[in-house]
């Protein structure tokens, strides 16, 4: 009940949205497509949910071919598109009923699957979907995508524009759904969410930069990373940019993350340079890379 993608390409006019993409999602896996706008994530979702036909390559979902067996796939999968696409003029309950009916089932029949999520919006069941807050819309959309008990769930940027609290809750929900034998393919531009997936593909410009478990991607980071801080952030950015030893220097929260071109680079070398530039309160410490460091290094 997994997903298999082989050499998929898709272009719109001159833009190559997907460029020879191949990967497998194992049954029961929570798999993340991580990348910014324009990486090709939505195009891939639309091909896998049979809404778009690839120019080249093949793909199967739960063993069915996305072109020849599209009807079977549509019954088997749940899809939550990036843009809110429920009926704004129907109430919460009417939307859910509508999707259940379309798939030949009832809310009662699969209630256990959506219960955790639906109880949070049930107090508003008579409110029109268009009048819900962002977080509630997201929960309703997920309920509607789940109401027919899909084998595979496609979630296209379910947490974009959502605050950190609601994002955390949403991922807790996904972890629970995974326990119920649903294969989940989810995309996100938030790199910190990558750590919550079993495996991830880092995507940009229609290509996969790297595919592995998040901890393996971090472990494969090729350089030592130092976190650097001084009293003056703006000047620190400028000075690190022109330092002859700099391979990369990016703001990372309250620190800068710095990597050197030299493999035997030491914190003292940088401290000496910054002292020479009259920086105060200098702090340089070796640190662990994050998925975001990996992404930036790979897309450099």
């Amino acid at each position: 009940m997994g997903i298999s993608v082989k050499h998929i390409s898709k272009s719109y006019d001159k833009v190559r949205a997907l460029d020879d993409i191949s990967f497998e999602v194992k049954p029961g896996e929570l798999f993340g497509l991580i990348g910014p706008d324009g990486a090709g994530k939505t195009t891939l979702f639309r091909i896998l949910t049979t809404l778009l036909i690839a120019d080249k390559g093949e793909a199967t979902v739960a063993g069915y071919d996305v072109v020849n067996d599209y009807k079977a796939i549509r019954n088997l999968v749940g899809y939550m598109p990036g843009r809110f696409s429920l009926y704004q003029d129907l109430t919460v309950e009417e939307n859910l009923n509508f999707f259940a009916t379309i798939f030949g089932t009832t809310i009662e029949e699969n209630y256990d699957l959506i219960k955790d999520i639906y109880v949070q919006i049930e107090p508003f069941k008579n409110r029109r979907a268009g009048k819900l807050s962002g977080g509630m819309k997201q929960k309703l959309a997920l309920s509607c995508a789940l109401i027919h008990k899909p084998k595979v769930l496609f979630l296209d940027e379910p947490t974009t524009g959502v605050d950190p609290v609601s994002r955390k809750e949403f991922w807790e929900i996904l972890k629970r759904l995974q326990q119920k034998d649903i294969t989940i393919l989810v995309s996100t531009p938030y790199m910190d969410e990558a750590a919550l997936c079993d495996r991830i593909a880092l995507m940009t410009g229609g290509q996969i930069l790297q595919l592995s478990a998040p901890e393996a991607i971090i472990a494969s980071f090729p350089k030592k990373i130092f976190k650097v801080r001084t009293a003056e952030t703006y000047r620190l950015i400028q000075d690190l940019k022109v330092f002859t030893q700099t391979h990369s220097a990016y703001p990372f929260g309250e620190y800068m993350h710095f990597t050197s071109m030299e493999s035997d680079f030491k914190a003292e070398d940088l401290i000496r340079y910054l002292k020479g530039k009259k920086h105060k309160n200098i702090e340089v410490l070796e640190t662990e890379p994050t998925i975001e460091d990996s992404f930036m290094e790979l897309s450099k």
Binding site: P36, D37, E157, T160, P189, I237, P251, S299, K300
Partner: peptide, 24 residues
């Protein structure tokens, strides 16, 4: 108002460098 949503991490940082520059 949420100027960097959906932008890749490098561009996001370049954007913040513009912000720092203006604050400076």
């Amino acid at each position: 108002d949420e100027p960097t949503g959906g932008v890749d991490p490098i561009t996001r940082r370049k954007f913040w460098e513009m912000i720092y520059r203006e604050a400076h």
